[in-house]
Amino acid sequence: MTEKIKIKSKNVNVYYGQKKALDKINLEIPTNKVTALIGPSGCGKSTFLRCINRMNDTIDICRIEGKIIVDEEDIYSTEVDPVLLRAKIGMVFQKPNPFPKSIFDNVAYGPKIHGIVNSDDELEELVIYSLKKAGLFEEVKDRLNDSGTSLSGGQQQRLCIARAIAISPQIILMDEPCSALDPIATAVIEELIDELVKNFTIVIVTHSMQQAARVSQQTAFFHMGNLIEVGRTDQIFSTPSQKKTQDYITGKIG
């Protein structure tokens, strides 16, 4: 199997103050595939995700060593602007966090600040396109001026996805996007991920192994700051090569 590699991490170490959160992570993430990061809580999977779009920069005590290469470019080199990087890499968070603005303004926020659109018509077109892409448009088309916070949890999360794709990123990072949602809303989001992977490279952190098995093509297992094993999802879940992975999948550690 020959795949184009979108993201490549080389010997990534992360420290929170004195504490080492990630230890020598080497991971390759293929283009237009879903890669799932799994592992017990506190294993460093979310930390690694936040390294990819440099969200850890906003935490004062966080320090990162090593290289993360996106499209042949080390994102931690001094020439790279995190603002530009984050425009290229969208993110969806654990808890739906729409801005306390209207549905329309939520989606329009990114295009507006980045100056992507030239006219109001273009903006409206883009907002509708993004909402459609996130599978939300039909539900909210009559109330685009209602507050984003008035939506249900699942709708809010899809709004956040629409918001992320409005600036057409190449990569979407998802940090346990369904952990705050009920099973029906979760199913809708998972379908959406299947749809989105045609255009985007997706990295998803999840605590649910079933979810990882359902949506991802590649799975990486983290444990106590170490990357234990990475491989094709079906292979990881059926014949893991590491004992720890086996233990985790069978519920011995968690």
Binding site: D81, G115, I167
Partner: peptide, 14 residues
Amino acid sequence: NNLKKIEYSLKKRK
């Protein structure tokens, strides 16, 4: 494309 536009606006935003 989008990234070009963003890069273009970036100077002013900085």
